[in-house]
Simulated scan of single mutants.
Amino acid sequence: MYNVTPHHTARWRALLHDCVKAFADARGPREVSVIASPEGALLPHWRDANLLLSQTCGFPYRMLGLERDAQLVATPIFEAPGCEGPRYRSVIVVSNAAWRNGATTLEACRGLRAAANSIDSHSGMNALRHAVAPLAQSRPFFSSVTWTGSHAATLRALAAQDADVGAIDCVTLALLRDAGFEPLRHVREIGMTVDAPGLPLIAAKSLDDSDLEALRDALDTAHATSPARARELRLRGFARLTPGAYAEIETLALAAGEQGYPELR
């Protein structure tokens, strides 16, 4: 989920290879392939009975039934503004033009054009919906909502003045800033959402308990293999949360609904 540039993709792929090696050293050789990114819809990929390791968002894990179809392996711990241990926030950003026109708080964004990566994203949709709900008073808050497909695309839309406001995963934002992502020059940060458990690493339900523990240990080994790579990925390690920790995602969604704001609008 954090393949924000080709360089980051290569570093994540190297970490996965080290993880697979450590796992094989502990549990014996396995036929494992590492893919750069899954093709097509993500839910079938996450529900694959042969899935050894992947990363999803907390929203589909908790809200779209993935918790029943896959098991939680670990939650990454990142070093980025907005992160505390295995928890993260979304950064609310506006275009420079919106900022100049007075959009310096979320409340001042009423009637502006929102952009979000996807309707099943906690960081781009659910966290922003929760933040807007008490301001919306059961009515539409934005003049429009555009689904962009990625946080980077949301930032490009803001920079091009095709949208005015959005919420960006704070880890994604930090990695893009490290990479010198040009659209960031054209946006301003105006706040953060509440925090929530970070994006979970998952495996197929078919993985037995001993393999699951070996996989967790292999992740720790892979992380320690290259401190330089870990710094580039802003990765501090992995936490072992329980599936119940992700109930917070649902709590935030329900809170918005109870305030008459069941969808981002």
Rank of each mutant, 00 (worst) to 15 (best):
T5G: 05
T5I: 07
P6L: 10
H8C: 12
L15P: 04
L16T: 13
H17S: 13
D18I: 02
G28T: 04
E31C: 05
V32S: 01
S33K: 07
I35R: 08
I35V: 11
S37W: 02
G40P: 12
L42D: 11
L51W: 00
L53F: 04
C57G: 05
F59G: 05
R62N: 02
L64P: 07
G65P: 00
E67Q: 11
E67A: 11
D69T: 01
Q71N: 01
L72H: 04
A74D: 12
I77G: 10
I77F: 08
A80Y: 09
E84R: 06
G85A: 12
R87F: 13
I92P: 03
V93F: 02
N96H: 08
A97C: 00
R100S: 08
N101F: 06
A103Q: 06
T105I: 09
L106F: 05
E107L: 04
C109A: 09
R110Y: 01
L112T: 13
I119A: 15
I119V: 15
D120V: 15
S121P: 01
A136L: 02
F142H: 05
H151W: 06
A153N: 13
A157C: 07
A159S: 04
A159L: 00
D162N: 14
T172F: 01
L173Y: 15
L175E: 01
A179I: 06
E182V: 15
P183Q: 06
V187K: 03
E189L: 04
D195T: 14
A196E: 15
P197H: 05
G198E: 00
A203L: 14
K205L: 14
R216I: 05
L219K: 01
L219G: 03
A222K: 06
P227T: 02
L235A: 08
F238D: 12
A239W: 08
A239P: 11
R240Y: 09
A245E: 11
I249E: 03
A253C: 09
L254E: 05
L254G: 02
G260R: 04
Y261K: 06
L264S: 02
